[in-house]
């Protein structure tokens, strides 16, 4: 028996919008720790890891570990039927091949349930060890989204370079080149507007912009984003979900031949 009640149902709607472009089908794993997902895009270039901790739910019952295969486009269709203020409850019985999403309006005058068929998905789980990153950049998520969007109108790839001067995003294409430098800026009115660079050593890596643009679908989940970079490792782009967990995207760099 699984029953997860999330008062801030809009979070779940935003999570689906954040991952459905990158991943088509995925297994949602439910355990005492929380509601999680790890999935790669079809070309295995990018990976998304989601965690919604059990403590973040108003009610969390998960009698045994359960993995539920879902088509994310279909989940998104179901969740789009929930109002933005609705409380969302996810329910499944042991051994059942369906999951139910229940939507309650804030004043309880409308209750809807949507039952969706589960599917068998052969997904590979990758072990991602904790790593020390050479540089971690924290910046406003809207600013990062803007940079990725702007650069992708010029080129297909971006070189992200971190030095003690700041973080530089560079691209080149048929019509020309572009460089955007963001300097560390801690002296802002609100902490979420700061750009903070923690650098152990300078690092420079090249990435495909279309994946980074896809990651920025998570922008509504968090006002800030952190970008962790190391030579010879995928970049980690993390959006924290207030008090509950995170959506982390991993993107393999371009490798010099």
């Amino acid at each position: 028996m699984l029953e997860l009640r999330l008062v801030q149902g809009s979070l779940l709607k935003k999570v689906l919008e954040a991952i459905k472009e990158l991943v088509t089908d995925a297994n949602f794993d439910c355990s005492a720790t929380g509601f999680s997902l790890q999935a790669m895009d079809s070309s295995h270039v990018a990976l998304v890891a989601l965690l919604l901790r059990s403590e973040g739910f108003e009610h969390y019952r998960c009698d045994r570990n359960l993995s539920m295969g879902m088509n994310l486009g279909n989940v998104s269709k179901m969740l789009r039927c929930a109002g933005s203020d609705d409380i969302i409850t996810i329910k499944a019985d042991d051994g059942s091949d369906t999951v139910t999403f229940m939507f309650e309006s804030p004043n309880q005058d409308k209750i809807a349930d949507f039952e969706m068929k589960l599917m068998d998905i052969d997904s590979e789980h990758l072990g991602i060890p904790d790593a020390e990153y050479q540089a971690i950049v924290r910046m406003p998520s809207g600013e990062f989204a803007r940079i990725c969007k702007d650069l992708s109108s010029i080129g297909d790839t971006v070189i992200i370079s971190v030095t003690k001067e700041g973080v530089k995003f560079s691209t080149a294409g048929d019509i020309g080149t572009a460089n955007i430098v963001c300097r560390q800026n801690k002296t802002v009115d609100k902490p979420e507007e700061a750009t903070v660079i923690e650098m152990q050593e300078p690092v420079s890596l090249t990435f495909a912009l279309r994946y980074l643009n896809s990651f920025t679908k998570a922008t509504p989940l968090s006002e800030t984003v952190s970008i962790s970079l190391s030579s010879d490792l995928p970049v980690v782009v993390e959006y924290k979900i207030a008090d509950m967990g995170y959506v982390r995207y991993y993107l393999a760099p371009k490798i010099e031949e």
């Binding site: 295995h44 270039v45 990976l47 991993y250 393999a252 371009k254 010099e256 031949e257």
Partner: peptide, 14 residues
């Protein structure tokens, strides 16, 4: 020239 890496170049299946 550069080639696009994949997750398998960096992480092991578990």
């Amino acid at each position: 020239d550069s080639i696009q890496g994949t997750m398998y170049d960096f992480y092991e299946k578990c």
